[in-house]
Amino acid sequence: DVAEQLTPVLLDGLREESLQLVSKLKDSSSSCAVDVSAVWWEAAGSRELCVVTACESSVSLWKPLASDRWGKVYTWQLGEIPVIQIVPLPETCNLVCIALGDLEIGEIRWLLLYSSENDSFKQSLVKTGNIKAVLGLKDRRLVSSSRTMQEQQVEIVSLSETGRSKDGQTLMPPEETVLAFAEVEGMRDALVGTTAVNSIVVWSVNLKTGQLLKKMPVGYSYPASICHRAYSESGLLFVVLSHPHAKESESCGNPAFRVIAFNPKTARSTGVMFSSLPPGHAGRQGDVKDASAAAVLTSGAIAVWDLLLGQCTALLPPGPEGSWALARWATTTACLLAGQGDGTVCLYRY
């Protein structure tokens, strides 16, 4: 039934051809896929793009073999707390970060793919607490927000080449809980976050200070917006937001992503581009890289958008083996990782 409903959209040639299946990997020992990601692995002078898969109790590293096949290199066993997500670290080799917890993140761990000290794969604890949001940053850094009954802590930690955590930097927290972070591209010292009362906050994160520079309202029509990407251009701060709880309207359809331009000097903003869910679809769990967004819809399909055009450019229907459960960009938007609940991961060229 679902496949029939999707047929009219797939007949649009652009959408049909814009995703090409490259290869597939299946973890026969896993039946509980939680997340998937890509990571660069450097060993013996060569660098390969590897795939990391997570199920509740373990995380596995896969490397490419000949003929589009994949081989499992190593599996980290994680103990009693379930894995919730893989946290990618941009432009970083041989390092994966994972978040563990029950209803919310209770623990963050580094997984080091290869340690030159003793030729081993190892893991170490980075942080514990009631962690509300976490993001991997450039230069082997990680930012997180966590809450106690009294206060919120926003902290950046960094990791040395040998896998040891360096001293952290504390950022000035806003009053409301921070739900998501995004680095401002091209501005090493600027970081933004979205909060539970729908504000964008901007920090300066240079070595000396963690000042909260500005708080700007997103608008009441889009509660609990999540920031995915931020960049500064012509004196404006552009932020890509998703709206998991926005209501469908006749004029706008069902909003999935918006690009909003903020003037940080005045805190005023204006919508730049708007991307809706395909007609008849609901629900999303999104991933944004550059100007491309991907999300799993409740129908079990994966949708891909060009955020600058505000258009859905590809729709991957549920396969014969079942619904899609995960959609993540690899290190670039040239490669989409599409995961099913049974541990199957398909790599698509976009």
Partner: peptide, 23 residues
């Protein structure tokens, strides 16, 4: 969008806000 909608725009907004922020 026009400048009048968003107010006066500064290319150096980050440096200016950093200088204004209490340390």
């Amino acid at each position: 969008c026009s400048e009048s909608d968003l107010g006066p725009i500064s290319l150096n907004w980050f440096e200016e806000l950093s200088a204004e922020a209490p340390s």
